[in-house]
Design a binder for these strands. Structure first.
Lengths: 203, 203
DNA sequence: AGCGAATCTATACGGGCGTATAAATCGGCT
DNA sequence: AGCCGATTTATACGCCCGTATAGATTCGCT
């Protein structure tokens, strides 16, 4: 394992137990068994390392959700949404501490152009990917860059964000998957009106 | 004006243009024209001052919304919700920078017991107050401590939070007041079934 | 084996940080 | 006027921070 990998792993750990804002360069060195100067050498700065770590976390989450959403090839789009959110909600409790760091980073990004660009790019990629999954699940030849797919993707991602944050603010007040489904039904049919030919699920 | 007030005002200003995490004690002194030691004297610590400032911001927001929600004495509960959220959404753009600081504080609270307690108390008070408004708007003698009122209050507050955060993450993807109303209608009728029973969505 | 590049180590540096201390000043009260 | 507590001032202390530098080591290649 290179120092680079060690540092990344340590950053990931520390994001969980110290929080983005309170990690010092010396924390990272101690947790990784590497050297102070290695941070600068491999990542340019402490911020560079931390942001790289945030990115891996984000990608990890998207991977998990994407895999889950597409696990059942026969599922309708609405079922996939349900599955995704249910899984997301179920996992939130265990992600709590990392989530806090992620939210911290989100806030810092407002005044840190580099981090901001990085997060924006991450979101863009994520949405494109989700849009692709939506198109795939429609199975009628619609492509991922279809505006409707992009709209649905934005919506799905936004809901995941909203749920995550709400679980921080008020862990006991987060809606159940069934609550979500009721809301989803309304919003989904508003996006894909069930008039004429439509493959989207009926409830 | 006492140093206490000057510091509080400076903290409020700095929360907007430097962000919770990056305000230093010397920033506060410079912006307030006071003295380094006055922070400790009046607030115990820099964190004490910052948290007091956050509290005033929070209370200011609640005051504004409460006033707006109750402006029209003939409005139904659902109309009040609509008005409140619409106003909240309209104001979010102008609150953006303060909002970032608030979110930062929220994240920090996870590892800062004092701040955490303070925010929890703020939320509790806020919910009680909203529940009171809900009861008042029902106008049928229901009291604010009725479980249904409390549930509605939690929901309303959570939505405000969710909207705020989403406006940070993705300002262009925030739902319109009308989108909200559609979702609200579903959820509201699920909370207060117009007739006997079972209005919740099913798979 | 020998060389250059990549990587790692040890340490120094300057700076900014939050807080504490002690003295000066103010303000109300008798 | 004189006192006392509340407040304000000026400054010092010690700590820890992020980064840079320079030299040692390792690795890949011929």
């Amino acid at each position: 394992m290179s120092h680079r990998d060690d540092l990344l792993a340590a950053a990931r750990t520390l994001l969980e137990d110290k929080g983005y804002a309170h990690i010092t360069a010396r924390d990272l060195v101690a947790a990784s068994g590497t050297n102070l100067a290695s941070i600068g050498y491999h990542f340019g700065s402490k911020a560079g390392l931390l942001n790289a770590a945030i990115a891996t976390v984000f990608e990890e989450w998207t991977d998990q959700l994407a895999e889950l959403a597409m696990a059942d090839p026969t599922a309708s789009p609405i079922e996939r949404g349900h599955v995704t959110w249910a899984a997301w909600l179920a996992g939130l409790a265990g992600k709590r501490r990392l989530l806090v760091s992620y939210i911290e980073a989100l806030a810092q990004a407002e005044r840190a152009p580099d981090l901001r660009r990085q997060l924006a790019e991450l979101y863009r990629t994520c949405r494109v990917r989700v849009a692709g999954l939506v198109a795939e699940s429609l199975g009628d030849g619609t492509r991922g860059d279809d505006p409707r797919c992009r709209a649905v993707a934005s919506f799905v991602v936004a809901v995941c964000d909203g749920l995550a944050v709400q679980s921080l603010v008020d862990p006991d007040g987060v809606p159940t998957p069934d609550d979500l489904l009721a809301g989803l039904a309304t919003l989904w049919s508003a996006s894909f009106p069930p008039d004429g030919n439509d493959t989207s699920g009926r409830t």
